[in-house]
Design a protein around this nucleic acid. Structure first.
Length: 295
DNA sequence: AATGGTCAAGTCAGC
DNA sequence: GCTGACTTGACCATT
């Protein structure tokens, strides 16, 4: 079992999300930010290795505005040396990397321009993982998008669009249940028709469980991961007690963690992304106080 | 240096 | 139809 956290290391003060705003985005600024992000990514991976954390989500801004016309850099060529080095390091230590584009990346929108921009964002994310030389266990996690008042049609549209994507993108994509629209059962429905693996998120499940018995859903979710996809991935987080439903707590609740860990471990090997606001501080607290058997 | 406002993009609820 | 929430940090402008 590999374990990790997203984008920002609080312990080292490093982040892969240095960015700028559009009107300040010059080639020089974009170049400098990319350089900084890659330097931080390199150091974060070293720091992670020292802790035995082999899973990491790269921030979508690692190359700021990469999928926007304002960014005209040939970043793959310009940073080839850094990308090679980071990729070699990650592969040498059997790390698994990922991207998780945000709420604006919507593949099933009825608006073709929105779909086009979503595909561009996914294309860039895949190109970055390709540039690192990562195999297809390194994934791009997306949600299923909007419902537009009619979920069946919106889900069908998602399937249709995925089927038009080139293999180079499809092989990287995985889908995740969300906290208000699409349940694990919906994601499984899409998976059956597209072959995309499903990431199970416990907090989203709590907010939006949908139909199906948990045990059966988990078995079916884990079965969506084929050999070339790597072990199943899950997202774990606890509810922020002072926040709205679905907000991530600063730290993981250890009892809840043990409960889910037992459930998942029963089903076989898997990798776990801890989505806590305290990032690697939360991971350190969790693993220090509650040693994980298979970890 | 500190502080408060702003930020590519989409969807949805509430008015 | 329009506005703000969502979530989040990091940057940017102003002081």
């Amino acid at each position: 079992m590999r374990i990790g956290y997203p984008c920002v290391s609080r312990l080292t003060g490093r982040t892969t999300n240095h960015e700028t705003i559009l009107r300040a985005a010059t080639p020089d600024k974009l170049r400098a930010l990319t350089r900084q992000n890659l330097a931080d990514l390199r150091e974060i991976l070293r720091h992670n290795l020292a802790h035995g954390w082999l899973l990491f989500r790269i921030g979508s801004s690692v190359v700021p505005f990469a999928s926007h016309p304002v960014n005209t850099l040939d970043w793959q060529a310009e940073f080839r040396h850094d990308l090679d080095e980071i990729g070699a390091f990650a592969r040498q230590h059997d790390m698994r990397l990922s991207f998780h584009p945000g709420q604006y990346t919507v593949l099933n929108s009825p608006d073709p321009q929105i779909v086009r921009r979503a595909i561009e964002e996914i294309t860039y994310s895949a190109a970055f993982l390709d540039a690192l030389g990562m195999d297809t266990a390194s994934k791009i996690v997306i949600h299923l998008g909007g419902t537009y008042g009619h979920k069946p049609a919106a889900l069908a549209r998602f399937v249709e669009i995925v089927q038009t994507l080139p293999h180079s993108l499809r092989r990287r994509l995985v889908i995740e249940n969300d906290e208000r629209s699409y349940t694990p059962a919906d994601a499984l429905w899409v998976s059956e028709r597209t072959g995309l693996p499903v990431v199970f998120d416990n907090l989203h499940y709590a907010a939006n469980p949908g139909p199906g018995a948990l045990q059966d859903l988990l078995e079916r979710v884990f079965a969506t991961w084929k050999a070339e996809d790597g072990p199943p991935k899950v997202h774990f987080s606890s509810q922020a007690l002072d926040g709205r439903i679905g907000n991530h707590a600063d730290y993981a609740d250890p009892d809840e963690f043990r409960e889910w860990l037992a459930r998942w471990t029963q089903l076989g090997n898997f990798d776990l992304m801890l989505e806590a606001k305290a990032k690697d501080e939360a991971l350190l607290a969790l693993t220090a106080e509650h040693p994980i058997p298979a970890y």
